[in-house]
C-alpha cells in the first residue's frame, strides 16, 4: 500500500519546530507579565494554539496526512468549540 511509505520527516525539521516551540513558550511567559486585561487570556490561548498547531502539523504528521484526517480533526475541534461556546448563552446572560 502506498501510504506505508508516507513522508519521512527530516531530523532538521523536527529540531526547528522544537526550537520554535521553546521560543513560543518563552514568549507566552513573557507576555503574561504584562497586564492586558481580558486580552491576557486570549493572547495566551493564541500562542497555545500556535504551539499545538506546530505539534499537530509536524510532530504528529498531520501536514502529511490525507484530507480525511484533517477534516476529522477540524470536526472534533469544532464540536468542542460548540460545546464550550453554547454554554456561554447561559453563563453570560444568567
Amino acid at each position: 500500500m502506498s501510504e506505508e511509505h508516507a513522508h519521512i520527516v527530516q531530523y532538521k525539521t523536527f529540531a526547528i519546530v522544537w526550537i520554535g516551540l521553546l521560543i513560543l513558550t518563552g514568549l507566552t511567559v513573557a507576555v503574561a507579565q504584562y497586564n492586558l486585561g481580558a486580552m491576557n487570556i486570549w493572547v495566551a490561548l493564541g500562542i497555545a494554539t500556535l504551539k499545538s498547531g506546530l505539534v499537530i502539523a509536524f510532530f504528529m504528521h498531520m501536514k502529511y496526512e490525507s484530507r480525511l484526517f484533517q477534516l476529522s480533526l477540524f470536526a472534533a475541534l469544532a464540536i468542542l468549540a460548540i460545546f464550550i461556546g453554547l454554554n456561554f448563552f447561559d453563563v453570560l446572560y444568567r
Partner: peptide, 13 residues
C-alpha cells in the same frame, strides 16, 4: 499540557 500551562500558571502574573 500546552493549554494547561498558560491557563493555570500564567493567568496574569
Amino acid at each position: 499540557w500546552i493549554f494547561v500551562f498558560p491557563l493555570y500558571y500564567l493567568i496574569l502574573h
